[in-house]
Every structure is written in C-alpha cells, then in structure tokens.
C-alpha cells in the first residue's frame, strides 16, 4: 500500500503499487526515476494546502450545463469489418484476448 500522509510529512508515492493499478509494467529503474520525479512534483503541488477551501464547492464541470440528453432512437451500428479492422487479434466476428480466468 501507499504510505499515508502523517503529520504534514511529505507523502511518498509508491510507484510500484500505483503501476499495478494502472497496468503498467515498469522496470526497477523506471520506478526509481519516476518515484523521484513524482515526489518532486507532489512536493510542488503540496502548496495547494495553503489555499483555504473549507467553504468552496469543487468545479468538475466548468460550464453550468445540466440535463443534456438524447432521445431513445436506434441508429445504425458499425459494419463488422469496420468494428474489427483495427483489432490486433480476432476470431470470426469476435475480439480475441488471452484466456480470462474466473
């Protein structure tokens, strides 16, 4: 697990764990280098704590849009050739992947 930020100590990112979550095979070198760079960046980012946001609403959408919807109408799907033409591996009309074990 990643280390927690205690007593305002700078949090250290556990690149190995995060890389697993992000499905990225990183070399030991990459983990080391990224760890240093990202900790620098996170150190810089830490200045956000100087902003008092106690009464501030977050902005996820910059525009005041709401209720943007479409009507339930069927439109033609892709032709199967178009669907599969970019696939790295396919079989008949399926995409093909290494075996999924449940």
């Amino acid at each position: 697990m990643v280390s927690k930020d205690n007593n305002n100590k700078k949090s250290e990112i556990d690149v190995g764990y995060v890389a697993k979550l992000a499905r990225l095979a990183l070399t030991a070198d990459e983990i080391k280098r990224l760890g240093k760079q990202l900790n620098d960046i996170l150190g810089y980012i830490g200045k956000l704590n100087n902003v008092d946001t106690a009464k501030v609403q977050p902005t996820s959408h910059v525009l005041p849009l709401k209720n943007v919807e479409r009507t339930d109408k069927v439109v033609p799907s892709l032709r199967i050739e178009e669907t599969l033409k970019n696939a790295p591996l396919k079989e008949n009309s399926f995409f093909k992947v290494p075996k999924v074990i449940e």
């Binding site: 799907s77 199967i80 399926f94």
Partner: peptide, 27 residues
C-alpha cells in the same frame, strides 16, 4: 427496456450475431 443503448444509438436487441450492435462509442 430501451430501444437504444445508455450512451449511444446502438440497438439493445438480444441475440444478434456477435459485435453487430456496436459503434465507436460502446466499443
């Protein structure tokens, strides 16, 4: 029971041949 999918216009009909009710959005 909608005619089209949640976020695109592909049909929701059951039992069609594989990957024939897909579009760039639901793919």
């Amino acid at each position: 029971k909608t005619a089209s999918k949640m976020f695109c216009g592909c049909s929701t009909k059951f039992g069609s041949p594989p990957n024939t009710q897909v579009c760039p959005i639901c793919l």
